[in-house]
């Protein structure tokens, strides 16, 4: 598959009064056409900043992309001018935000808001753009769409608003859809509706999806590949099966064990990751997970681990190389690097 998006050594920093916050600190990853990639991690790990950097929506000041490349269809998005960026945003790359309540304009009808990008990017007008808006609403499963284009956001429920957001995002047949916590604010039955629609449309139109979420169940169901982020870095990357079945970074291992499973019949004590993520304001010389890691050795204090290929296509950033036994779930460190 051809590479649609390549992010190389992206660094997005925020220059605050307290100091420099290294929100995204040198991440490198790529996304192929039609693929679904998940970015997972706890709040503040840099997931959303990564997405906002791709769309160049980082508020400046205080934020700035200080280094790196974002190649989209071979073109570096960090080098194009504002006018060209506007022609890409909402057109070739679309975004679905977390809050369906606040990301729609309350004083414009649903139809007006969907038509905005159609008219801007596709050059349709009048009846043609209204017809396209109705078609999109039908696509995302809004019944009586022809009548509802003239309704205002407050007349829609949360799940319907999120589907409207998806309709808007898909209006120009984007190559890349970025969904930042698209279902976090929704109930589970509505979450299932919305995600099924997103997955079906991605398959039908060959859209690549970057999904940002902290819900590991959603990742297990929809993602082809997973990037686990911690303290502004990717600490592990691989296929969904790699990450869930054979995690190789202590943080990923801890994350998997700390989530109760819906299909667990016995109540076992949850494993916790003690402590808090580090403040990104200080430069961390060694491994950023060091203070919370059970496996750390002296080397982890001083040397920053690189992303190392543990098996084909499966990378982790760890000196100790832990392994989880598939049957017993016991973790052993494969290398006593010191």
């Amino acid at each position: 598959m051809a590479k649609l998006l390549e992010v190389n050594n992206l660094k997005t920093y925020f220059f605050t009064e307290e100091g420099v916050v290294r929100a995204v600190n040198g991440v490198t990853w790529d996304l192929s056409e039609g693929e679904t990639l998940a970015l997972v991690g706890e709040s503040g790990c840099g997931k959303s900043v990564t997405a906002m950097s791709i769309l160049r929506l980082i508020p400046n000041p205080p934020g700035r992309i200080v280094d790196g490349q974002i190649l989209f269809e071979g073109k570096d998005l960090l080098k194009v001018d504002d006018a060209e960026m506007r022609s890409i945003r909402g057109n070739r790359i679309a975004m679905v935000f977390q809050e369906p309540m606040t990301s729609l304009n309350p004083v414009l009808t649903i139809g007006q808001q969907i038509r905005e990008s159609i008219e801007l990017h596709l050059g349709l007008d009048g009846e043609a753009s209204t017809a396209r808006a109705v078609e999109l609403l039908e696509l995302v499963g809004i019944s009586e769409a022809a009548g509802r284009v003239n309704d205002y956001p407050h007349q829609f429920s949360g799940g319907m608003r999120q589907r409207v957001m998806i309709a808007m995002a898909l209006s120009c047949n984007p190559k890349l859809l970025i969904a930042d916590e698209p279902t976090t604010a929704l109930d589970v039955t509505i979450q299932a509706q919305v995600l099924e629609i997103m997955a079906r449309l991605a398959t039908e139109f060959g859209t690549a999806v970057l999904i940002i979420t902290h819900n590991l169940g959603v990742v297990a169901r929809y993602a082809d590949r997973v990037n686990v982020m911690y303290a502004g870095e990717i600490v592990e990357t691989g296929t969904a099966t790699d990450i869930f079945k054979r995690p190789r970074h202590p943080y990923t291992i801890g994350l998997m064990a700390s989530v109760p499973r819906l299909d667990a019949t016995e109540r076992i004590r949850l494993t916790t990751i003690e402590g808090q993520p580090p403040l990104l304001i200080q430069e961390i010389p060694g491994c950023s997970f060091r203070p919370r890691c059970d496996w750390a050795v002296d080397k982890c204090d001083t040397d920053h681990p690189g992303l190392e290929e543990k098996e084909p296509g499966h990378f982790a950033r760890c000196w100790r190389n832990p392994l989880v036994d598939a049957k017993t779930q016991v973790v052993t460190a494969a290398s006593a690097a010191n």
Partner: peptide, 20 residues
């Protein structure tokens, strides 16, 4: 229950779900 995904990609993709 069927709407909640399980954190196991292999099991999860075989599950049947009832979409309300």
């Amino acid at each position: 229950l069927s709407a909640v995904p399980i954190t196991d990609p292999e099991l999860e993709r075989q599950r049947e779900r009832i979409i309300l």
